Each structure stands twice: as structure tokens, then as C-alpha cells.
Simulated assay, not measured.
Amino acid sequence: MITITDKGAEKVREFLDSNPQEGEAGLRVGVRGGGCSGFQYVLAFDEKRDGDMTFNSGGITVLCDRQSFPYVTGSTIDYLDAMTGAGFKVENPNVTAACGCGSSFRVEDQEEVSAV
């Protein structure tokens, strides 16, 4: 499961209301290879695709492809608005290491594969 905080849901709702899409639209959460620690988050406003896992959190549809799900399961998506910047933040219990800038991460399975 992937959840979204009240503040995160509010920001997603604001975007979706100002940019209507056809079909079931929501916040897509995924990962891709890259960055200094191995994986980077992919967050996008998108429509549901075949094979997506979907969750409802805070009245928002959260979408995730099946390949990304093992790396983000249990995560919470929040929206932060601070003097240093604003944006979505992922709190991921699967992360075992992250880069200093916070844009990439590593998970336990990845470390085991890297060690072989």
C-alpha cells in the first residue's frame, strides 16, 4: 500500500482540478534506475494504465506500476512547503541508504544484488 498525507492529497487535488484529465487520474508513484544511490523516484500526475496497482488515500487515486511497487510499498507521500523549496517528499521504509542530496536511494535487495 502507498498512502498520501492530507497536505499531499490537497496539492494533488489542486493540480487535478486545474488540469482535468480523461479517465481515472491520480498521482503515479514509481522508480527508475539512476542517481548516485541507484534508484530515483518518479512522481507524475497520470491516468490509470493496464496493470497498474491502485490505492485510494485521502480521496486521491495513487497509481503504481507492478515493477516499482516492491521498492515503494509502505511509502507515504507528503507535500512540503519550506523556505528551501516546495514539493512532494517520499517517506519510504524500504530505503537502506540515500544520497546526500536526497534525490536517489538504495533498498536492501539492491544491496544484496550489488554485493554478489
Rank of each mutant, 00 (worst) to 15 (best):
N94F: 01
F45L: 14
D6S: 14
F88P: 01
N19C: 09
E112W: 02
V90N: 09
Q40P: 05
G102N: 06
T73F: 07
S104Q: 06
Q67S: 13
V107P: 00
G34Q: 04
T73N: 13
T61F: 11
D78K: 03
R49E: 15
L80D: 10
C64E: 02
G58R: 08
V90P: 03
Y79K: 06
V12W: 04
C99P: 06
L63Q: 09
R66D: 14
S18Y: 06
D65K: 05
L27C: 06
T96P: 00
C99Q: 05
A9Y: 08
G85L: 07
N94K: 09
S68T: 04
K7E: 15
F39K: 03
V107W: 00
V107H: 00
D81S: 15
Q67F: 13
K89L: 13
D17S: 15
G85S: 10
S104C: 13
M1K: 13
R28H: 09
G30V: 02
S57K: 07
K48T: 13
G58E: 12
Y41G: 04
P20D: 09
F105T: 00
D65E: 08
D50F: 10
R106Y: 00
E47F: 05
D17H: 09
L16E: 10
G8K: 07
E47G: 15
D46L: 07
T76C: 08
L16T: 10
T5R: 06
R49Y: 09
T5Q: 09
T96F: 01
K7C: 04
L16K: 08
I2D: 02
I60M: 11
Q110W: 00
R32E: 12
G33H: 01
V113C: 02
G100Q: 14
Q67R: 11
T54C: 15
D109I: 02
S57Y: 06
N19Y: 15
C101K: 04
E47K: 14
G35C: 08
L43W: 06
V113I: 09
K48P: 03
G35H: 03
D52S: 08
I4V: 15
T54F: 04
S114M: 07
N19R: 12
S114E: 11
T76R: 12
Y79R: 06
G59W: 10
F45A: 11
T84A: 13
V72T: 03
V62Y: 03
V72C: 01
K7I: 13
S103N: 12
G8N: 09
D52M: 10
E91A: 10
E108S: 08
V116P: 00
V31W: 00
S37P: 00
E10T: 13
R32M: 11
L16W: 07
D78H: 04
E24C: 09
R49N: 12
R106Q: 11
E14T: 13
G58W: 10
R49V: 06
C99A: 07
T54E: 15
N92W: 01
L63W: 10
C64M: 03
E10K: 14
C36F: 06
L27F: 05
K89C: 12
I60K: 05
R13H: 14
D109V: 02
C64R: 01
G100R: 12
G35D: 07
T84R: 10
A25W: 11
